[in-house]
Design a protein around this nucleic acid. Sequence first.
RNA 1: AAAAGCAGUCGGAUAAUCGCGCUUUUUAUUAAAAGUGAGGAAAGUCCGUGCAUCCAAGGACAUACCCCCGGAGAAACUCCGGACGGCGUGAGCCGGUGGAAAGUGCCACAGAAAUGAAAUGCGAAGCCGGUGUAAGCCGGAGUCGGCUUGCGAUUCGCAAGACGAUUAGGACGAACACUACGUUGGCUUUGCCGGACUGCCAAUGGAUUUAUUAUCACAGGCGAUGGUGCAACGGUGAGGUAAGAGCGUCACCAGCGGUAUUGAGAAAUACCGGCUAGGUAAACCCGGGUAGGAUGCAAGAUAAAAUUGAAGGUUACAAAGGCUGUCCGCCAACUUCAGACAUAUCGCUAGCGGUUAUGAGUAAUUAUAAUCCCAGACAGAUGAUUAUCUAGAAACAGAACACGGCUUAUGAGCUGCUUUUUUAU
RNA 2: CGGGAUGUGGCGCAGCUUGGUAGCGCACCUCGCUUGGGACGAGGGGGUCGCACGUUCAAAUCGUGUCAUCCCGA
Length: 115
Amino acid sequence: MLPKEYRLKNKSAFNATYRIKKSFYKNGIIMFAGKISNVPVHTKIGFVVSKKTHKRSVKRNRLKRLMRESIRLLIKNGYNFHNRQSLIFVGKSQALGKSFDEIDNSIKLLLKELD
RNA sequence: AAAAGCAGUCGGAUAAUCGCGCUUUUUAUUAAAAGUGAGGAAAGUCCGUGCAUCCAAGGACAUACCCCCGGAGAAACUCCGGACGGCGUGAGCCGGUGGAAAGUGCCACAGAAAUGAAAUGCGAAGCCGGUGUAAGCCGGAGUCGGCUUGCGAUUCGCAAGACGAUUAGGACGAACACUACGUUGGCUUUGCCGGACUGCCAAUGGAUUUAUUAUCACAGGCGAUGGUGCAACGGUGAGGUAAGAGCGUCACCAGCGGUAUUGAGAAAUACCGGCUAGGUAAACCCGGGUAGGAUGCAAGAUAAAAUUGAAGGUUACAAAGGCUGUCCGCCAACUUCAGACAUAUCGCUAGCGGUUAUGAGUAAUUAUAAUCCCAGACAGAUGAUUAUCUAGAAACAGAACACGGCUUAUGAGCUGCUUUUUUAU
RNA sequence: CGGGAUGUGGCGCAGCUUGGUAGCGCACCUCGCUUGGGACGAGGGGGUCGCACGUUCAAAUCGUGUCAUCCCGA
């Protein structure tokens, strides 16, 4: 789990992020981006892999853990996420079964799109 | 050695770096240390419990579930042991296994008939004998009786002959006759002779038929055989009969009832009896047994906040509504829509607990003692990378209140017992 | 977590209650009609009834298990 200040909670917060309708797709991963804040904040990040993606929870948890690990390493290196209030990463069936390197590269490419 | 059956085990390991949840302690809001952290199925949600809230004065009927016997268990579409049935050469495996003799329904097509079953209405006219009627065939042989003749001789026997009886009927056997054909011989036809053919006659040969036949009438016996079908009032074989039949006949088998023995019981074995009862209850149902109902931890409890609408509908006569599915009975209110709130703590993990030892029991299980504390999150913790090894590529798969089962998924192996076959000694 | 429903030709659905014959519409193929196409008319092909086991003489239908899909509540 990420530290508490980085976690995206609450259904209303998720809905608020979705309503911005700003999304990017790369290699089976969709990124939803929230509002841009003027003040530096801790960006709240959520991970979603729906049950429709795969029936078995082991496969879904694996994908979420790989995405979370990639983000954790970025936070550790001091990445600022361009002052976004919130981000949501949605894993799709194309991303299942891929290695950590592939997931990591996809997420870095997605974050570059924010500029 | 190979192929099987059953039971059990394992469910990656080590190291480095970067990380996560919970608990405790120390510090004190920045953290640090220590401990601990997914499964045999956590899965499917197919059963059963605990726990929690709401409802229920109560009665009756429904309803749901269970169904060989004994035991275990809190209970169970649970487990253990046994009985019976089925499958397999076998070790073993499988089985929702009360009642079809309480009643109802169904059994398509085919078939005479499919269940208060029993017809001859299907086959070339069911099979069988009897009587009658009609037509046809034979009219003989055998048997018996005395007589005559001959032979042998014991009052008798044998052979031949004709006569009579049986008998004017018979149809048991055999023969004759009849029919067609072959062979041989003779006769016949023409003016004459010869031959062939035809016809006739005789002998002979083998073959066929050889006494009954009737789609007739009457009164009966029979439930067999063929055919239909999953199934036809028990099956196979023999005896028996005019033909037949479990036919108060027989053997074997299936089923039913009774008695005896064994067993705790399901049941088994033996004997006897009568002589037979279609299938389906995973169709309704009948019998026996069990169950207050509903909702599921997002149940629910506490604290804090909020608890709104000039909204609508039904009813207060009757109807409708609520209280358990229905009825009796009881109650006076019930309800829709929109909006708002949805935070924290508890519930929450010490339990029908785990491990070990001993005792009881065939076993399931249980008793006693010792010892251990072993996830508890809330956008949700077990991860990532690298190296080495087993087996260059590690299966199925992730707790969300808990427990007991069942079912399903599962890689590479390992261990024990048992069976069958083959080979060797 | 709990509750409910559905799997039948290429597609959408009947038939299941009460077991014996699998049918309808669109689509497809052939022929006709038309100058040609569409529409229309006539004819035809195509289905392991999701899968497995069982009950029964006989199963799409009855029973059990299993797989997949969809919906609902909080």
